[in-house]
């Protein structure tokens, strides 16, 4: 498969170690990856690259994951892109709010990398 034919995953994570972890594993699985560390950059990068899937951390400085998620959904091209939300909180109310703004899946930290990769694959196929 050529580089450009591979599906693109946008990772929005402000913890550099976790971003690195996701990048390595996603690339090992054959996907292309772009990483950004803030909500504002996420929206810019989303418009620029139109990724096939977004992995979005909930707790971001300034613009939160929830706000980024709902902004992407409002964008007419972003209505159907799969969004997986990562969070360090595990409370049910947060989960509901995440689903409410249109996240497709919700993953609580610390997560299993293998499980996360499976969910990425599943969401990319469905889409």
């Amino acid at each position: 498969m050529t580089e450009s034919a591979k599906q693109l995953v946008l990772v929005v994570e402000d913890e550099p170690a976790q971003a690195e972890l996701l990048r390595y594993n996603l690339e090992k699985n054959g996907w292309r990856v772009v990483c950004v560390d803030s909500g504002d950059d996420a929206l810019l990068m989303y418009r620029e690259t139109m990724p096939d899937l977004v992995i979005l951390d909930w707790m971001l400085p300034h613009l939160s994951g929830i706000e980024v998620c709902s902004e992407i959904r409002k964008n007419e091209n972003g209505a159907h892109v799969p969004i997986l939300m990562l969070t360090a909180r595990g409370q049910e109310e947060d989960r509901l709010r995440g689903i409410d703004v249109g996240a497709d899946d919700f993953i609580v930290k610390p997560y299993s990398v293998a499980d996360l990769m499976e969910r990425v694959a599943r969401n990319l196929i469905v889409n």
Binding site: E15, A17, Q18, L21, Y24, K28, P110, V113
Partner: peptide
């Protein structure tokens, strides 16, 4: 308590993830 658990969970997530990656894909 919510703040402490968040602050501890961030580095823990990286550690758990790297261990899993080193045992598997890496």
């Amino acid at each position: 308590v919510a703040n402490v658990s968040h602050e501890l969970r961030s580095p823990l997530t990286a550690l758990v993830g790297f261990i899993e990656t080193l045992q598997g894909p890496a």
